[in-house]
Amino acid sequence: MVSKLNTPGQRYMYRIRNLPLTLIHPPKGLAPLELGKLWRYRDLLYLFVWRDIKVRYKQTFVGTAWALLQPLIACLVLTLFFGKLARISSGEVPYPIFAYTALVPWTYFVNALTHSSNSLIFNSTIITRVYFPRLIIPISAVATGLLDFAIALLILFGLMVFYGIIPTPALLTLPFFMLMSLATALGFGLWLAVLNVEYRDIKFILPFLTQIWLFATPVAYPSNLVPEKWRIIYGLNPMAGVVDGFRWAILGTNPPHIPLLIASITVVTILLIGGLFFFRYKEDTFADVV
């Protein structure tokens, strides 16, 4: 068998087959992100997303309808308590669509954050046995939620028709705010997923965190309830920027407060890039620790 490579011609064949050389060495601190590698593993990313979508509603009674029910029920509750009882002002738009518009990105965010934070643990058997860029796991967790997001968005368009809301040119910014909610979920999700590998406390912290977070986000109330001078600090919660952006894009009412939006975008960018590096830095230890 070895003699296969003995003549120059065969060596040449060997070289043009261009076998990749892999060097395996101890971890050396900060690793490059190797985003190109992610691209080579895109089939796996696709299959993880597809698996999670297929499996998500298996053995449930209403199935995919959960994608509709989650934001709709939340909308009903908010309308009842905040719209009717507390009489929170929703400006010139009816309260239900005011709340639902915010709930579409919010529900996506909470689900995507929860799934990505738990994703490394759920896939621990694969992590300890097969090599692939681990970033695929939280990314696929965040991407899986996009289907539910799209379904909830369709209902939103339906509600717009129902309430006679005419889209403004601001609607064109919607993809940007969608992307921003994805980036927020991934940014936080990367950090929490890595921490979750070592400290399962994260699993218990998450439900609290998202509950408290809901109050810090202008879902049930408009962000102009927050005094103007506090808006930048308020914007440090990136979901504040996302939700304000969504309302503006869909309802065409108040444009987002610019300092608030800039604060949100800055936080998301720092968190996401930092999270990617933190993840890569810790990636080598996952198989030993998880």
């Binding site: 101890p26 097969v130 090599y131």
Partner: peptide, 23 residues
Amino acid sequence: ILSQVTKPTEGYAEIHGRVGAML
């Protein structure tokens, strides 16, 4: 280590070619 699931603590390994693992 050879399939890159875990990293070595010291030393190194060279692998010429693609690796498939049935662990």
